[in-house]
Amino acid sequence: MAAQEIHLELLLGKQVIDSTGKAIGRIEEICAEQQGEEWVIKEYLIGYAAILERLSAWNIGMAILHVLGAHKIHGGYTVPWDQLDLTDPQKPRLHCSLEELKSLNQNY
């Protein structure tokens, strides 16, 4: 299979569909690490909770939500790099079920 170049910034905000065709959220953050001279994608963060991660405002955001009465936030998932099908970058799809993903649930 030939390598495909994808501009990561164009993936941000794209709706992700699970293996059953259900929308699970939008790509809000892409986590990578440097290995030698290359950067390797580790995971994608999807959903509302991932927005706080992208803005590096998780602690501040949770503190504000706590003051407003929220004690738990849900709405995000961690998707390992190999579980996201980017064959069509305009319509990313999961290779796995939603239940197999790690949730970004956080208690405050």
Results as ranks from 00 to 15, higher is better:
I41V: 15
H66E: 14
M1D: 00
R26L: 05
A2F: 11
T20S: 05
E100W: 07
W81I: 01
G13E: 00
D18Y: 00
R26E: 10
Y108I: 15
E37Y: 01
K22R: 06
Q83K: 11
V67A: 10
V79P: 13
R54W: 01
L65M: 12
H71W: 07
H74R: 14
L101S: 06
L104S: 06
G75P: 15
N105H: 05
L104T: 10
K91N: 11
L8Y: 00
D18S: 01
Y44C: 03
S97V: 10
L104P: 08
V16C: 02
A32I: 02
A32F: 06
L86T: 11
T87I: 05
E38D: 13
A50H: 11
E99T: 10
K72W: 00
L45Y: 14
A57K: 13
Y48K: 10
L8S: 13
L8N: 03
I24G: 02
I41F: 05
K72F: 01
L86F: 10
E53C: 04
T87L: 03
Q106G: 09
K72N: 01
H74G: 08
I27T: 11
Y48P: 02
A32N: 04
Y48D: 09
I73K: 13
I17H: 04
R26H: 04
A50N: 12
L94E: 05
L52P: 00
K102Y: 04
R54N: 05
A63I: 09
R93E: 02
G13R: 07
H66N: 14
I60F: 12
E28G: 15
E28M: 15
L10M: 07
D88I: 03
M62G: 00
M62F: 14
G36F: 09
H71M: 12
L68E: 15
P92I: 08
D18T: 06
R54Q: 07
W81E: 14
W39T: 05
K91Y: 07
Q34F: 04
L101P: 01
W39P: 02
T20N: 05
Q34R: 12
W81L: 06
E28K: 15
G21Y: 01
H74L: 05
A49I: 09
V67M: 14
Q90F: 07
C31Q: 09
L45W: 11
E43C: 09
K102H: 06
G36Y: 09
A57S: 14
L11P: 10
Q90S: 15
L86C: 10
I60C: 07
K102W: 02
R93K: 15
E5L: 04
H95D: 06
K72M: 04
D88L: 02
K42W: 02
D82Y: 12
R54A: 09
E43H: 06
L45P: 13
A2Y: 03
L10P: 01
L68S: 15
E43D: 12
I24L: 06
M62N: 12
G76F: 06
H95S: 12
L104F: 08
G25P: 13
V40T: 09
P89G: 05
E9Q: 03
P80R: 02
C31F: 04
G25W: 06
H71P: 02
Q34C: 05
I27H: 08
E5P: 00
S56K: 13
